[in-house]
């Protein structure tokens, strides 16, 4: 069962291979690590939800997956991990279907960590164990004239929807993420639209009993890109 959700940016500047002598965004990595550490503290299983790269030019794994793996490695906690990649431009329906699948599998995670019926853990009666969703998702990269995609004034309204949805998670706010328009988000370089819609569908599929409350939520845009670092936890 999904007990925790942690949302982090997918910025490559969080990766060790891109670190300069001083941090480009001071404190960002530390906040991400702290949020992830809190969110996985009791997890038996972690599902990383990330988008494919929009402009892949290498054979390396997607940036989102690498950022997630780096943050998880910093926690030094034992749990199993699976990666769910969603196409950066996946239609909303595809995100919803993927989210429901994630929720269903989370409800069947055994004490061994992997979902029942998967090749990792075929069958068994084990009780479902706590699962954390680690969602790698950014808002618009067009929030200022110096932003990677230059300024698009529409970015702030769309980012506002994302932030309010996350902050309103306790009042079923995440469902509003499903209203994000894929084409508009593509224009605004919202790299996290598809993973956020997978998240919304996964949490929604779990029903009211699995409602999540906001434990922490920090928002910043040091480079004209919206970064959200948030930890949502199931109410006990």
């Amino acid at each position: 069962m999904i007990t925790d959700v942690v949302i982090v940016p997918g910025a490559p500047l969080l990766l060790p291979e891109y670190q300069g002598r001083t941090a480009a965004a001071p404190g960002l990595l530390e906040r991400c690590v702290e949020a992830v550490r809190d969110a996985v503290a009791k997890a038996a299983h972690v599902v990383v939800v990330h988008a494919t790269d929009r402009e892949p030019r290498s054979t390396r794994p997607a940036l989102g997956a690498r950022v997630a793996d780096h943050l998880l490695a910093e926690t030094h906690v034992g749990f199993s991990v699976e990666h769910v990649a969603v196409a950066w431009d996946a239609p909303r329906e595809e995100c919803v279907a993927l989210g429901r699948e994630v929720a269903e599998r989370a409800d069947h995670v055994t004490s061994g960590g992997a979902a029942q019926g998967s090749v990792l853990a075929p069958g068994g009666d084990a009780k479902a164990r706590p699962t954390t969703l680690l969602v790698v998702a950014d808002g618009s990269a067009r929030r200022s004239e110096k932003a990677p995609g230059h300024l698009d004034p529409r970015s702030h309204e769309v980012d506002g929807v994302i932030v309010e949805a996350i902050r309103g998670a306790g009042e079923d706010g995440l469902a509003r993420l499903l209203d994000l328009d894929p084409d508009l988000c593509a224009d605004l370089l919202v790299a996290g639209r598809a993973p956020l819609q997978v998240l919304a569908a996964a949490v929604g599929a779990a029903g009211p009993a699995a409602a999540l409350g906001v434990t922490s939520c920090e928002v910043s845009d040091p480079f004209g890109v919206l970064y959200v670092v948030a930890h949502l936890a199931r109410a006990h």
Partner: peptide, 12 residues
């Protein structure tokens, strides 16, 4: 021999 001081270009 030395990393750049601070890198954000293309990495944000």
């Amino acid at each position: 021999d030395l990393p750049p001081a601070r890198t954000a270009r293309g990495l944000a």
